[in-house]
Design a binder for these strands. Structure first.
Lengths: 176, 176
DNA sequence: TCGGAAATCTCGATCTATCGAAATACTTTC
DNA sequence: GAAAGTATTTCGATAGATCGAGATTTCCGA
């Protein structure tokens, strides 16, 4: 539940100015985070013989349990042939396997092999450890706040990347 | 796995478990944010006739006041010829201009024209506005907490991308 | 059972980013 | 003032990702 009160606030003007600056600083930092994260991702992808797009697809394969080649093409906006190439690379690198859907044998289901999962975790390990260390320094309530913020950030990024004139990145309620 | 029972002692094991899960969830969400941010950046870069790398360089040119071509090559790790190509694209797109350094006329200083800055802001506008809306919903203390978290995240990302001697990343490259 | 539709793959072509080597323009050193 | 060094660009070549068209396999409705 929220504890905010609808009380009119006669605050000093420099306080609200500080607040605006703080907000702007956070926005800048978040944007900066994006750039740095991209760099890191690119470096890690390179070490696995993939490109950043492929690495993102690996992640998708991990999270979406019944990912098909066609669905992947839909999500990424690539042509089906390009998607085949992406899957080739992911498979060659040992991240995924192609499994024909027994229910519809035209379909190819992308399953994460889990074989190189450990290496990926190791690659992301330093980041994860450092992040855990940062997060451990907060108490439970603060963590909840941070979680809420990050989740909301995530939501709005998802909304923004779901372009109306493009493919529906928003997954419709599982029409199967 | 053991079934969870209701006979929790006065210790609070599931509290610390909740905490660990919360931390893991935040880490996942942050990572997710990175992916989504990348998507957005790519989409925006495309709209400006650039690639994500170029867009990052545009940002660098904005922030670093006396950026030279050589320094840009150093930062990005590209060859000098590739850097020339990057500058060509950035210049053709109207983001920067090449100015010969009067102090050393071999050098080319990259200066942001500011001409398309407005458009860039417009492109990132929806993200910024949505983010501002999210941030406005927090009180000052909460904002300070968020700012601290984001800044610390930034710091560790910078540290990780700066170090070229990430040992765990160099894992056996041969996929079986 | 047959024919059209759907999912994926193969193949050939193209486009782009990158590299290395050599060229150019300028500076510093002797 | 010439030679060596530095910063950037040009040029040719290459590798990689992507696309479109067509082939292949499988599903589904009549």
């Amino acid at each position: 539940m929220s504890t905010r009160t609808g009380r009119d606030r006669d605050r000093a003007p420099d306080r609200s100015r500080d607040r605006a600056e703080l907000i702007a600083a956070i926005e800048d930092a978040v944007r900066d985070n994006g750039g740095r994260g991209q760099l890191l991702h690119q470096a890690i992808a390179e070490r696995f013989g993939l490109n950043p797009t492929d690495l993102k697809c690996v992640d998708l394969a991990r999270t979406e349990p019944r990912l098909t080649a066609g669905r992947l093409a839909e999500i990424t906006g690539l042509s089906t042939s390009a998607t085949t190439a992406v899957l080739d690379r992911m498979e060659r690198a040992g991240f995924i396997e192609r499994v024909r859907d027994p229910a519809d044998r035209r379909r190819v289901v992308v399953v994460s092999t889990g074989r190189r999962e450990q290496e990926l975790n190791t690659a992301f390990g330093p980041l994860k450890d450092a992040m855990t260390a940062v997060l451990e320094s907060y108490d439970d309530e603060q963590l909840a706040l941070i979680a809420g913020f990050v989740r909301r950030l995530n939501d709005l990024l998802r909304d923004l990347t779901a372009q109306p004139d493009d493919k529906p990145l928003t997954t419709p309620p599982e029409a199967r």
